[in-house]
């Protein structure tokens, strides 16, 4: 017993030394249970978010207003699904199968980004999601490229490259609409009115209320706090909105200083945390719809997966 404890203590010391030295932790390396559990939760939540995120954008594919916009939207959704694949693969290196992760999602034991529980109501929402939601995601993901777990970090490097495209494409949609007709401008303003606050909520609760921040920062899974990332996003995005003529839906938004690069920083209203927790806990406008959609597609596809498995087994037995 004493020997095991001693071993664990040594292993933990080695693990922490690697973290301190910025050496990535790899799947076969020893890691504390709590570190593994944190990663299982965080990476699978991230993977589910990419996949569930296909739904609100998919809602407008058949109504995309031009061939170009339809191609861009299809390719974007395809990218998101691809991110889901990288992330499920990274999550599987922790010893849990994709099937198990999907089962946990369906059972409500795993979450996905709450922002996708809001509906997409007009074409500008596609712009707003790219610009604001992907924009918020990148702010977080750029820092996650330096996360301590190797497979997650490498997945994030690939994902960030594509997400920055998406953000620019989303901003282009908003820009075009603000340069367009009165109807288009109205749609664009309506979209930012609805998506601004959910985008800010994407960074999670205040640091003081965040259950997972402590260990995650210590083990360098997370590299910056929720509030710091949220401020970065606001500072970057408000000038972009102003450039297009869009009004950020916050009456208390005002410049309160400058950052180290001389760029303005902002004072803003607090988030409606009641709404945040309502949506996190399943009471958003589309929580039920999103999950049911995923479950239905999974159940409808069961016979196809069984067919593919049976065919593979039959082929292997013929060849074997």
């Amino acid at each position: 017993m004493e020997e095991t404890l001693l071993d664990e203590a040594t292993l933990l010391a080695e693990f922490e030394a690697k973290i301190d030295a910025e050496i990535k932790i790899e799947p076969r390396d020893w890691m504390p249970d709590a570190y593994r559990k944190h990663l299982i939760r965080q990476i699978s939540q991230h993977a589910h978010s990419e996949v569930i995120g296909m739904q609100p954008e998919g809602n407008w594919i058949t109504r995309a207003p031009s061939l170009r916009s339809k191609k861009i939207l299809l390719a974007k959704i395809q990218d998101e699904g691809g991110h889901g694949l990288y992330l499920y693969s990274a999550a599987e290196t922790l010893g849990v199968s994709r099937d198990q992760y999907i089962q946990w999602l369906h059972e409500g034991k795993a979450k996905y980004a709450s922002v996708f529980n809001y509906p997409t109501l007009n074409w500008a929402d596609i712009g707003a999601i790219g610009w604001l939601v992907d924009g918020a995601a990148i702010t977080n993901q750029v820092s996650l490229q330096r996360t301590s777990y190797g497979p997650y970090s490498r997945a994030m490097v690939r994902i960030c490259k594509e997400e920055s495209f998406h953000q620019r494409q989303g901003y282009e949609i908003m820009w075009k609409m603000m340069e367009g007709t009165k109807d288009q401008q109205r749609m664009a303003q309506d979209a930012i009115n609805r998506w601004w606050w959910p985008a800010l909520m994407m960074f999670g609760p205040h640091d003081s209320d965040s259950a997972h921040t402590g260990n995650a920062m210590k083990w360098k899974i997370k590299r910056e706090t929720n509030d710091r990332l949220r401020e970065k996003f606001i500072n970057k995005t408000v000038p972009q909105a102003e450039l297009t003529g869009l009004k950020v839906p916050d009456p208390n938004l005002k410049i309160n200083g400058t950052d180290s690069f001389g760029e303005p920083t902002y004072e803003h209203s607090d988030i409606n945390w009641d709404e945040f927790w309502q949506v996190v806990n399943g009471n958003g406008p589309c929580n039920q719809q999103r999950l049911e959609h995923h479950i239905k597609a999974h159940e409808d596809g069961a016979w196809v997966r069984e067919c593919a498995t049976a065919f593979l087994n039959n082929s292997n037995s013929l060849n074997g």
Binding site: M54, Q55, G58, D300
Partner: peptide, 14 residues
């Protein structure tokens, strides 16, 4: 395109 997010598994969806 209507089938997007309705595939039997993610690879096939893509």
């Amino acid at each position: 395109a209507e089938n997007c997010s309705r595939g039997p598994f993610l690879e096939e969806d893509l």
